[in-house]
């Protein structure tokens, strides 16, 4: 069901480069480092999956990519360089606003409704166009319509609907339409399929996969579900307690996970084939305030392979082979 889109320049995908990024949350109990000195390259034209539990700082990182961390969070350090645009943290506010939506699209979690409940979807497309100074609103609306059809929906009905008239899966597709209607080159999906059931999730992911291939988008997929990234991403980044634990090409990482946390996450997925008893639950609970205070490896308390060294200090996140990075003393020692 291919639909003719107007010809756009899909030639050069945009990459994002995060350098030494730190975000803290100011609370009564002191500062919580939600993102702690993170270095990350989001390769142009690839699907990068960022996986972490609640409290891993993955959503904060996503917001920081657009420099829209909300209070009481604050970016304290670092840079986010978007190809062809510059440092998101340094350019003017007006420029940032234009970049968001125009170059970088964001799809929110289905639960937090990012759509205005009081106006029709079509109106919201026009509002978006106006705030980005789109001259030809009619063609923008046509473009939105084509996208909605592309996403497998009854476009005319959807454009005339209010958000409450749409199901969760449909709302999520509308969210993707909004992220793409201004031809964003980078799309960030923050837990976009978490609240959906399996079938809606699979169809939304399928659509993301197809759009990625058609348009050469750079996609950042943020989730707590290893299955989602394992199915879709080209590259997986594992976050734990605001720091990166491991990253690598998807197949490599799944076949030979180096960090015990990654291993635990993969093992904790119940499967529909094979022996279900092979699935092993991950120990302990997600990082909390006390975790951040410790000087050693953040994963120490839950780690099945911990050694004495792990308590001494944070392991260094470094490249172990081409394209694979990991922060673990045990891995260091093996070399």
């Amino acid at each position: 069901m291919s639909v003719e889109n107007k010809v756009e320049d899909f030639s050069t995908p945009i990459g994002v480069h995060v350098r030494n990024l730190s975000v803290v949350y100011e609370t009564n109990q002191g500062q919580i480092p939600a993102v702690n000195h993170v270095d990350l390259d989001i390769a142009a034209g690839e699907i990068t999956g960022i996986i972490g539990e609640s409290g891993s700082g993955k959503s904060t990182l996503a917001m920081a990519l657009m420099n829209s961390v909300s209070k009481p969070g604050r970016i304290t350090n670092g840079s986010v360089i978007v190809d062809g645009i510059g440092d998101m943290l340094k350019i003017s506010n007006e420029r940032q606003r234009r970049v968001r939506g125009k170059q970088i699209g964001f799809v929110f979690q289905a639960a937090q409704n990012s759509l205005n409940p009081l106006s029709r979807i079509g109106h919201q497309v026009l509002d978006l166009g106006r705030s980005h100074q789109v001259g030809d609103l009619r063609s923008l609306l046509r473009h939105a319509r084509d996208l909605l059809i592309r996403l497998g929906m009854d476009a005319d009905r959807v454009l005339m609907s209010y958000q409450h008239e749409l199901s969760g899966g449909m709302r999520q597709r509308v969210g993707i339409m909004f992220a793409l209607v201004l031809d964003a080159r980078v799309v960030i999906l923050d837990e976009s399929t978490t609240a959906l059931d399996m079938l809606s999730q699979a169809s939304v992911l399928e659509i993301v996969r197809e759009l990625h291939q058609e348009r050469g988008l750079t996609i950042v997929l943020i989730t707590h579900d290893m299955g989602v990234v394992a199915d879709l991403a080209d590259r997986i980044v594992v976050m734990y307690g605001g720091e990166l634990a491991e990253e690598g090409p998807t197949e490599d990482l799944l076949r030979q996970p180096q960090h015990p946390y990654t291993r635990g996450l993969i093992r904790a997925i119940p499967r529909i084939s094979g022996n279900p008893d092979e699935a092993i639950a991950l120990n302990g609970s997600p990082p909390d305030l006390q975790t951040f205070a410790q000087s050693g490896c953040l994963f120490y308390d839950r780690c099945p392979d911990r050694i004495a060294e792990c308590q001494a200090g944070r392991p260094i996140y470094k490249e172990i082979s081409d394209g694979k990075k990991v922060a673990c003393y045990k891995v260091d020692r093996r070399d």
């Binding site: 996403l151 497998g152 399996m198 992911l205 197949e251 799944l254």
Partner: peptide, 27 residues
């Protein structure tokens, strides 16, 4: 079959079933 197809495939550890089919239409 659609429900089973919707279960994510772990790339590298699994290969999708040959008849995998995900309906894009909503209920």
């Amino acid at each position: 079959q659609a429900l089973l197809s919707a279960v994510p495939v772990l790339k590298g550890l699994e290969i999708p079933g040959p008849d995998r089919y995900i309906p894009l239409k909503e209920m």
